[in-house]
């Protein structure tokens, strides 16, 4: 098991947000975390990498419990995180953005170099020295993923990678994610766009009001319109 989360509870101030969330990601798997806005997808991701003020529960990554570790230590252990708001360093060039993400290679995880990433995202290669602030939304989304891959993670949390992108770019994004999977990366991706999730993922969890309410393979979910209707508001 690559990542195993169990009994995860999270809080923002006095508000209890996540209730006993449990999920697992196997090596080389792409797992989709589906749910509507405010259901707790981003909070789940932020909790896993330790970006919320208070959380408890077990987060076991590659056999180590990281639920007490600070964010940077978790990420250095090989758990990459791509936030939903992209959060590009707009004053830094593409290359400098990648430099911030750079971490040493680690055994058992696919290794990335700038050149390899430029092959994965050809658009970026043409703008190595362009400041992040002067890129379009689609280009920024590619850069934010590339930046995380520079850390040579073995698992990546992708928070709503298709949000706000044109259909064509979303298709490119799907191709990139499948390539990453082929390289051996495990991926946990949160999504609202079911069409997109269908293209890329093997298994799925559905989260609602901070609780996991369904889990199964993507094909199973296809045959359950009742579940989709009840929890995803499709």
């Amino acid at each position: 098991m690559k990542l195993s989360v169990s009994a995860l509870n999270s809080y923002y101030g006095p508000a209890h947000i996540l209730f006993d969330v449990g999920l697992e990601v196997d090596a080389g798997e792409v797992v989709a975390l589906l749910g509507r806005n405010g259901a707790g997808k981003s909070t789940t991701f932020r909790s896993i990498v330790g970006l919320v003020a208070r959380r408890d529960g077990q987060i076991v990554f590659e056999g180590t419990d990281v639920s007490k570790s600070p964010t940077h230590a978790i990420v250095r252990g090989g758990l990459g995180y791509v936030p939903e708001e992209r959060r590009i360093f707009t004053d830094l060039t593409v290359e400098e953005n990648l430099e911030v993400g750079r971490q040493p290679a680690r055994p058992g995880a696919p290794q990335w170099s700038k050149d390899k990433l430029f092959t994965l995202f050809p658009n970026l290669a043409e703008m190595r020295n362009r400041p992040g602030g002067r890129m379009s939304g689609g280009e920024q989304q590619m850069l934010t993923i590339a930046r995380t891959l520079m850390g040579n993670p073995s698992l990546v949390l992708l928070d709503e990678p298709s949000e706000g992108l044109s259909p064509k770019i979303v298709e490119q994004m799907a191709h990139a994610i499948l390539t990453m999977k082929k390289e051996g990366l495990s991926i946990l991706v949160s999504e609202q766009n079911l069409h997109f999730a269908r293209l890329i993922s093997d298994r799925t969890y559905i989260i609602e009001r901070g609780r996991i309410c369904y889990s199964g393979t993507m094909t199973e979910l296809e045959s359950r319109p009742d579940i989709r209707d009840a929890h995803l508001a499709v």
Binding site: V49, P70, P83, E96
Partner: peptide
């Protein structure tokens, strides 16, 4: 480079593995 990045978004720098 890390300092300039942190000037813009320090949480993101941590989320990329920088202490």
């Amino acid at each position: 480079v890390l300092v300039r990045a942190a000037t813009q978004d320090r949480d993101m720098v941590a989320a990329l593995g920088v202490n």
